[in-house]
Amino acid sequence: MSLNSIFQYFVPKDQKIFFPLFEQAANNVVTMATVLVEAVNSNNLATREELFKQIDKLEHKGDEITHQIYLELGKNFITPFDREDIHALASAVDDVADNIQGSANRMLLYRVEELSDPMLKLSDLVLQAVNDLEKAIRELKDLKNVRAIADSCIRINSVENQADYIFDRAVADLFLYEKDALKVIKHKEILSALETATDMCEDAANVMESILVKNA
């Protein structure tokens, strides 16, 4: 019997509530990112606004899931992996949702009608990152496919590096070529929220890599 099998044998069934909660949180951010990509690629402002409102509702749903994870963490003495890792992973996924919502809210509140190419590219990268995040989290429940988790984490890190480059280049171009100071501020705020969403995906990947090392 492998060490992971022994580990799973001693995890009480009640403690396994964490895994479906994490999967729900991950599925929720995938849905949010999917709606975001649909919104930024829509030229219909009314449709875009409705999609942004969907993102807002989904973020509240994510808050409820995160709160439930914290409640379970407080109720359960025995956990499937380190308590600090459970808290860190839940917080990172919640931060992904917060920044997806933040970017959508800024687009809506700032009345940015013409979305830049870097915004579209960063939105696509956010979706790529959360898809890999969801894949990795789905494998956490039994740790049988460690390679799949590690590969997803590597891809998330790669996406985050791409997002960094796009963000830096986009901000540099704003400062160099854009004469409207308000537009510079608005666009930079939106780009920052999108890039930070990929940062939070990387934070979640780092937590999962830590879990793999501890349970190897």
Rank of each mutant, 00 (worst) to 15 (best):
D85R: 12
E50A: 14
E72F: 12
Q128E: 14
A204T: 05
S2T: 00
L73Q: 12
R155I: 03
E59V: 04
E134F: 04
E195F: 05
E209G: 03
R48D: 13
A181V: 03
V213W: 03
Q101E: 15
R169C: 04
D124M: 04
F52N: 12
I65D: 01
N76G: 08
L3F: 07
V35W: 03
N27P: 02
K75H: 10
S123Q: 07
L51W: 04
T198L: 10
N44L: 10
S123C: 07
D82Q: 14
E160P: 01
E160W: 06
A216D: 11
E139N: 02
D94Q: 12
L120P: 00
F19L: 00
I100E: 05
A90F: 04
Y165D: 15
V184G: 00
K188L: 09
N131D: 10
L109K: 02
D151V: 07
K144G: 01
Y165P: 03
V35H: 05
D168W: 08
K13V: 09
E195I: 03
Y177L: 09
T79C: 04
I65N: 01
E139Q: 05
K144E: 15
L127R: 10
L3H: 11
F19Q: 00
S103I: 13
Q162A: 10
E72C: 14
L45D: 13
I156E: 02
D168A: 14
N44S: 11
P118C: 10
L73E: 14
D95Q: 09
T66Q: 15
K141Y: 03
I166W: 06
T196V: 06
S5F: 00
D82P: 06
Y9D: 05
L3E: 12
P118N: 12
V184C: 01
A129N: 05
L89R: 01
E49Q: 13
N105T: 12
A216K: 11
C201F: 03
L21G: 05
A88Q: 09
N99A: 02
T47F: 00
N131I: 05
N105D: 13
I149S: 07
S42C: 08
V213G: 02
I100G: 12
N41I: 12
L176C: 04
L71G: 11
V11T: 07
L51M: 10
L125P: 00
L3R: 06
T47C: 03
I137L: 04
V171K: 02
E195G: 03
V29Q: 13
Q8R: 14
N215I: 06
V130L: 11
Y110F: 13
L194G: 00
F7N: 07
L194S: 01
L58F: 13
Q162M: 12
F167G: 00
I17N: 12
S42M: 04
I100T: 08
